[in-house]
Simulated scan of single mutants.
Amino acid sequence: MEALLEDYISPEDLKNFESNYTESRRNGTLTSQTQFEYAWSLIRSKYRADINRGINLLEELCSSQLGEEKRDYLFYLAIANTKICDYSRALDCVDKFLLAEPNNRQACDLKKIIKDRIKRDGLKGAAIAGGAALVVGGLVGLGMALARK
């Protein structure tokens, strides 16, 4: 599952998917499959703006589909939101997926990864805040010592 979160698309492949999507849209022949392929390529990009565009396309698909297709879109939305560290939205997507298919191994693994990342990022944030407080405290102490002289 980690490999899926660390998978990046080549710029050439992304350009090909974009061309297919743009041409299909211009011709009025856009299918959900073509839109999904482009969205999937976007969320495999290294750039946050591309991932956000992919999320928008997947959300469009998700709102217009039912059943198995919607579950697939929810799964990939969870992956995309995890990649941009929007863990609450990622958990929401994976939970909706698991309502329909509670024993799906990949979704369960993804949920565990999301929760681990929430915990890891929370600890990083606490360490940064603690370090900043220590620095500020040291500067205040130094300022007070210099003021006495």
Rank of each mutant, 00 (worst) to 15 (best):
E2F: 08
E6W: 09
I9K: 04
I9P: 01
S10K: 13
S10A: 13
S10N: 08
S10E: 11
P11W: 08
E12M: 15
E12R: 07
E12V: 11
E12G: 09
K15H: 07
F17S: 10
N20E: 13
Y21C: 04
T22G: 06
T22H: 13
E23K: 11
E23D: 08
N27P: 06
G28D: 05
T29P: 07
T29D: 09
T29M: 10
T31I: 06
S32T: 10
T34Q: 15
Q35F: 07
Q35P: 14
F36A: 02
Y38S: 02
A39W: 03
A39R: 04
A39E: 02
W40R: 10
S41A: 09
R44E: 06
S45V: 04
S45R: 06
K46C: 10
K46M: 11
Y47T: 14
R48D: 14
R48V: 13
A49K: 13
D50R: 05
N52E: 11
R53T: 08
G54E: 01
I55V: 07
N56M: 12
N56E: 14
L58K: 03
E60P: 08
L61C: 04
C62Y: 09
C62V: 07
C62H: 10
C62Q: 15
S64G: 12
L66Y: 12
E68Q: 13
E69G: 12
K70V: 01
R71Q: 13
D72V: 13
Y73L: 00
Y73R: 00
Y73F: 07
Y73V: 00
L74P: 00
Y76T: 01
Y76K: 05
L77G: 00
N81C: 04
T82P: 03
T82D: 04
T82C: 08
K83T: 02
C85T: 15
C85W: 15
C85I: 15
D86A: 11
D86K: 13
Y87G: 03
S88F: 12
R89P: 02
L91A: 06
D92H: 15
K96E: 08
K96C: 11
F97R: 00
F97P: 00
L98Y: 01
A100K: 12
E101G: 09
P102I: 03
R105K: 14
Q106F: 06
C108I: 10
D109P: 03
D109E: 10
L110Q: 02
L110Y: 05
K115Q: 14
D116V: 07
R117V: 06
I118G: 05
K119S: 09
K119N: 10
R120T: 12
G122K: 06
L123E: 13
G125E: 14
I128K: 09
I128W: 06
A129I: 11
G130H: 05
G131P: 01
A132I: 14
V135I: 13
G137T: 03
G137W: 01
V140E: 01
G141S: 02
G141L: 05
L142E: 07
G143A: 11
M144L: 12
L146W: 10
A147I: 10
R148K: 14
K149C: 06
